[in-house]
Computed example of a mutant assay.
Amino acid sequence: MKTINLAVFPADGIGPEVIAASQQVLHRLAQLHGGVSFECREFDWSSAYYHKTGRMMPADGLQQLEAGGFDAILMGPVGSPAIPDHITLWGLLLTIRQGFDQYVNLRPMRLLAGVVSPLLNPHRHPISMVCIRENSEGEYAGVGGRVHQGKPGEVAIQSIVFTRRVTERVMRFAFDYARQHGHRLVTNVTKSNSMQHNMVFWDEVFQQVAAHYPAVATDQQLVDSMTARMVSQPETVDVFVASNLFGDILSDLGAALTGSMGLAPSANLNPERHYPSLFQAIHGSAFGLVGKNVANPLASIWSAQLMLAFLGETELATRLMSAIETVVQDQRVRTPDLGGTSSTTEMTEAVCRALETEPTAATGH
């Protein structure tokens, strides 16, 4: 029996509900499979922890996680209306991303059969995109500061940091991912027409890396026009690689185009596995839904599916993706974000039931 050790963060808002759903699905999958089990250790680091201690996580939090021997981290949404967002984000999620060198943020955006897209004619424009977002520096490097605060001459500086090593490795990951998963095109998202130093550097590195992958087609798109392309011609978008900020914004747009933020997973990867990677739905903490049992758990469950794929549990990942697709396509169980009245519990149970059927080939990545 193989044991997968998980650090679990229910975190904030609807996090405890969707994380409990994800754990329920994983344990049911383990029961059905028989060859693997999940050992989960929960951490209470969250906004509630901040209210008690003045910190989002202990000072030695990274050391605790590293010493725990965890294979991966499963996290709920982080954020509270009672705490400024930059405190919650930098106090927990970005600290883990940067401290554990999780330099790839992988976000698939696919319109699943049975889901209604806000686009008028999605059947003519199928949506199946993958965002490879640089996740450790760029616009979110944290370099900068403020002086003369509160005075008329106040200055705030936030510096964008691109290093060759980090830029090159995320681009190599994008090309390797495209090649391994049968994608035909890698698009470089840039803004080098107006950002003449860092984004010109970004473009140069992209071209240098692309030269090592002659079998993979490439193109380049300015970030502002990329938004229009994703809406008007989503079928032309396959894999795209973007900086931290650009990837963050574009993947939220992609999630909306695929029907609901409740269907948007993500993986924060340290591909070399020197540290545990982190898997988390990209939707927010949605405090207005807390305790109502109506949050869609599929984004978190899909994030767990990405975790299984990353850990090399291909059979389990395929089976879980097939179950997600079955439930969504069936349309009998739908949470309010998908136009239905089903509960979080009902959606979770539907996925568990779908796991019991013979799996089919999944098309998600």
Rank of each mutant, 00 (worst) to 15 (best):
Q208W: 09
Q208Y: 05
V209W: 11
V209M: 09
H212C: 15
P214F: 05
A215P: 03
A215T: 10
V216I: 15
A217C: 09
A217L: 11
A217V: 00
D219I: 01
Q220M: 11
L222S: 08
L222C: 13
V223G: 09
S225K: 13
T227R: 01
A228Y: 15
Q233I: 07
D238N: 08
D238C: 11
V239T: 05
F240T: 07
F240K: 03
L245M: 15
F246E: 01
D248V: 00
D248F: 06
I249W: 00
D252Q: 09
L253Y: 07
G254M: 03
G254S: 06
A255K: 03
A255D: 04
A256F: 00
A256R: 11
L257M: 08
T258S: 03
N268R: 08
N270Y: 01
P271G: 06
E272L: 00
E272T: 12
H274G: 10
L278K: 02
L278R: 05
F279Y: 15
I282L: 07
I282W: 12
H283C: 02
S285P: 04
S285N: 02
A286R: 02
L289C: 00
K292W: 00
K292F: 05
N296C: 03
L298N: 10
A299D: 11
S303M: 06
L306N: 09
M307K: 09
M307S: 12
M307T: 09
M307W: 10
F310G: 01
L311D: 04
G312F: 07
E315I: 14
E315W: 03
L316D: 07
L316Q: 14
